[in-house]
Nucleic acid binder design. Structure first.
Length: 544
RNA sequence: GCGCCCGUAGCUCAACUGGAUAGAGCAACUGCCUUCUAAGCAGUAGGUUUCAGGUUCAAGUCCUGACGGGCGUACCA
């Protein structure tokens, strides 16, 4: 429809005598106020200045020349400062409604991102502890954006990047070792800055159970580290599964050392004179890109900082043929992004394919006060604990309902008591209600014939149908912005429109033709709710 | 100090690429269950969109500055 209007307007403008260069990008928008019609354009106002004319006058000329199919557009009017408002023809609306049933679980899909081969990298937490509420936003956001991309035609791979080497992991191994020795009743110093969580003790206990004291003389923490990594990764995978997230691949940073990518990167940097040695370290000339300081790539100890593998990793992604590499980052990692972009440019890649989705921090509120979480200090709330309390659906919904760009305030107490009042239930309830009606109505008559939808004339019915037809646009918009909360806003409006219909119009007990038409409308609504919830990774129950 | 993000109703937040009268939920108040699920509906009240300028047909949205908050600014990840 949007495309149809754009083309028609373009043609009309040509008739008026404008040439290609003078015609602006024709914007079609849905007016906020329904009395302004179903679609509107501001093109006349945009043209007012270059044509040195009154926008309303331009609009009049344009409308005169406009040749629209009455089967699609019922009326065209000029309003306000020069908006042109269009109203859809009823036949068009009924036809589109029938299409929803026909398309079923495909309805809402579009192809705006067709041809895009996307790698969405998210979670990417190192295996030092269970996933916490802080990781939850990353995980759910990444997975849902991946789903949105899929619904708009992209080919998507979900990847988890991790590093099982380095200081953090060494510390983890030492922590387990200390707990292990303590379990055996031996004297062992717990490392300074070690991981204090109870899960460390659990892992140590497992080791005692399995191997007794055979590791007591083990001088290196390697065994302990490996055991911890395996156990923690199992736990993380389990949590992700519960969250309805399935990774396609796990990428170990170590790969980049083993295949020579790290050395290759440094070599190229040196050749391009973007890296130099000083104080025993290797530096990246980030000042060339406007940063205050150059950045260390390899420490004087010979150990690379995380930026070097980050750059090599992104080059690796692009080598694998992805034309969209979407990274989901918390706000604290935002500074690494420019280095990665600049780094891969140095390596000769097109950095436009790399995109970062930054989300603001989750502020955990406990007892009315902000609560600082730290994996190391073990004062965190795990995702599993959260899901135990409020359920998987609520957990996903909670992380998605706000714009990634704003701080998410997470009041633990409130989330726990969220129960019945939680907004996710509003959507699920609407779906369950419809299913209940459909169960009852299905046996009441023979609905095998095509219904006459034109009996749906009540304002509640018309608004609901129009809202249903917006679904593909809502999905596409959320995908384009990488903002799932836009879809939630839409689904809330849809559920609200359905409930109005539910209260204004009965289905059971009406004459058969009307009952049939309304049944189809209810079916279509359930379909769209279910499809929307599927994108969010949330269940659409038939009963509540 | 410098960089990024944010500031909208009592609270938590929406508002498309700058569009027409800034919207929801929670909390408050008033009604509504002998009819398809009241986890619901209808209504009332609540706003100088932090402040001051600027850009233009049009600014919550863009620009400049101030104030307030978050994050970063490591040879930590």
């Amino acid at each position: 429809m949007e495309q149809y209007l754009q083309e028609s307007i373009r043609q009309a403008l040509t008739e008026i005598g404008l040439n290609e260069d003078q015609i602006p990008d024709i914007q079609i928008e849905k007016p906020r106020d329904p009395s302004h019609g179903d679609a509107a354009t501001n093109v006349a106002m945009q043209l007012a200045k270059p044509l040195r004319s009154n926008p309303r006058k331009i609009a009049e000329q344009l409308v005169d020349e406009l040749d629209l199919d009455p089967a699609r557009i019922k009326s065209t009017e000029i309003a306000g400062p020069g908006f042109i408002n269009f109203r859809f023809a009823e036949d068009y609306i009924y036809n589109e409604l029938a299409q929803i049933i026909e398309k079923g679980d495909e309805f809402g899909k579009s192809d705006g991102n067709a041809g895009i081969k996307a790698l969405v990298e998210f979670v990417s937490a190192n295996p030092t502890g269970p996933l916490t509420v802080g990781h939850g936003r990353n995980a759910v956001l990444g997975d849902t954006v991946a789903r949105l991309l899929e619904w708009t035609g992209a080919d998507v791979q979900r990847e988890y990047y991790f590093n099982n080497a380095g200081r953090q992991m060494r510390l983890l191994g030492q922590s387990v070792q200390a707990r292990y020795l303590q379990e055996l009743g031996k004297d062992a110093d717990f490392p300074e800055d070690g991981y204090e969580g109870e899960y460390i003790t659990d892992i140590a206990k497992d080791l005692v159970q399995e191997l007794g004291d055979s590791l007591a003389d083990e001088s290196v923490e390697k065994r302990f580290k490996e055991k911890a990594e395996t156990a923690i990764f199992e736990d993380i995978q389990q949590t992700l599964k519960r969250l309805n997230i399935e990774m396609d691949s796990f990428f170990n940073e170590q790969t980049l050392y083993d295949n020579g990518a790290i050395d290759e990167t440094i070599k190229t940097f040196r050749e391009k004179e973007m890296a130099y040695d000083e104080d025993g370290a290797v530096w990246f000339k980030t000042t060339k890109f406007g940063k205050d300081q150059d950045t260390v790539l390899v420490k004087s100890t010979g150990e690379p900082t995380y930026r070097l593998p980050d750059i090599a990793y992104h080059a690796n992604k692009l080598d694998r043929g992805f034309n969209l590499c979407l990274d989901v980052f918390g706000a604290d990692h935002i500074d690494t992004y420019p280095d990665v972009v600049n780094g891969i440019e140095v390596l000769g890649y097109n950095s436009e394919k790399v995109e970062v989705l930054v989300y603001q921090f989750v502020t955990l509120v406990k007892d009315g006060k902000p609560y600082k979480m730290s994996t190391r200090k073990a004062n965190f709330v795990t995702l599993d604990e959260l899901m135990d309390d409020v359920g998987e659906d609520v957990t996903r919904f909670f992380f998605l309902m706000r714009s990634p760009n704003t701080h998410l305030e997470f009041d633990v107490a409130r989330a726990k008591e969220a129960g019945e009042k939680n907004p996710v239930f509003y959507l699920q309830y609407a779906h369950a209600r419809i299913q209940s009606i459909l169960r009852k109505v299905s046996s009441m008559a023979d609905f095998s014939e095509q219904p006459d939808l034109s009996v749906l004339t009540h304002t509640s019915e018309i608004s609901l149908i129009k809202k249903l037809l917006d679904f593909p646009d809502a999905v596409a918009l959320a995908a384009a912005h990488r903002e799932p909360h836009r879809l939630i806003t839409y689904l809330n409006e849809l559920a609200s429109d359905f409930t109005s219909f539910y209260h204004d119009c009965r289905i059971i007990g009406e004459p058969e033709n009307l009952m049939h038409a309304r049944m189809v409308l209810a079916q279509a609504t359930a379909r769209v709710l279910a499809n929307g919830l599927t994108i969010l990774g949330i269940s659409a129950p038939d009963r509540m």
